[in-house]
Design a binder for these strands. Structure first.
Length: 192
DNA sequence: CACCAGATCCTCT
DNA sequence: GAGGATCTGGTGG
């Protein structure tokens, strides 16, 4: 099993967002292994991106966005926890939002956490993913480049015939025209 | 201390 | 496609 190293994340978020597609998000939760293939992401830039949480500077809640590449940035939206992975370098507030995964392992536990949903709908959106993978603020700021971490990303080659689609970001009124959302074309677990 | 703006989801029409 | 549920940090008086 190969884990994505820090240098993978220490690049332009637009590149990282696309390269993360097909990789496997791994979460150890109360002794259970939860795994899912990343099928949808969004890039948030360090400069000139009004929608990025770092645009208005460092705040109490976005501290971890300023950590070095390869750390988790967990923030809440309404009653949901959303997961970002920090890119580029320290004090560079760019990241990639994990919007959806295709459940691979620990599916029963995900169903328990979510309460409802078919396999395709367990984590086909950032908030749903947060529930299915038990993402909490305790994971905010953790290093995701170590196998001892409760959360990391496993490296695996993407299917050769897989193609990537692009669009503006979802749910972001400002700067929504920028093509910074990426997903695996045709995958059933992509949000709508 | 009150108000409000969100990187959402779910349930209706 | 629209609207309500519902939570928290940031901002200003």
């Amino acid at each position: 099993m190969n884990i994505l190293p820090k240098k993978f994340y220490a690049r332009d978020p637009i590149v990282v967002a696309q390269d993360l597609l097909g990789k496997i998000l791994v979460r150890t939760y109360k002794g259970t292994l939860l795994r899912g293939r990343i099928v949808e992401t969004e890039a948030y830039l360090a400069e000139g991106d009004e929608a990025a949480h770092g645009f208005k500077g460092k705040k109490n809640r976005n501290q971890s966005l300023y950590l070095d590449a390869g750390h988790a940035y967990v923030h809440t939206m309404r009653q949901y926890a959303l997961l970002d992975l920090v890119t580029e370098g320290a004090d560079t507030p760019s990241s990639v939002l994990i919007r959806a995964v295709e459940p691979l392992q620990g599916i029963e536990r995900m169903q328990e956490l979510r309460g409802v949903g078919s396999r395709d709908e367990l984590a086909n959106g950032p908030g749903k993913l947060g529930i299915a993978f038990a993402i909490t603020k305790e994971l905010d700021g953790i290093d995701v480049t170590r196998t001892t971490s409760p959360l990391f990303v496993e490296d695996t080659p993407r299917k050769e015939d897989a193609t990537i689609s692009t669009s503006g970001r979802v749910g972001v009124p400002r700067a929504k025209d920028a093509p910074l959302r990426f997903w695996i074309t045709g995958n059933a677990c992509v949000s709508r």
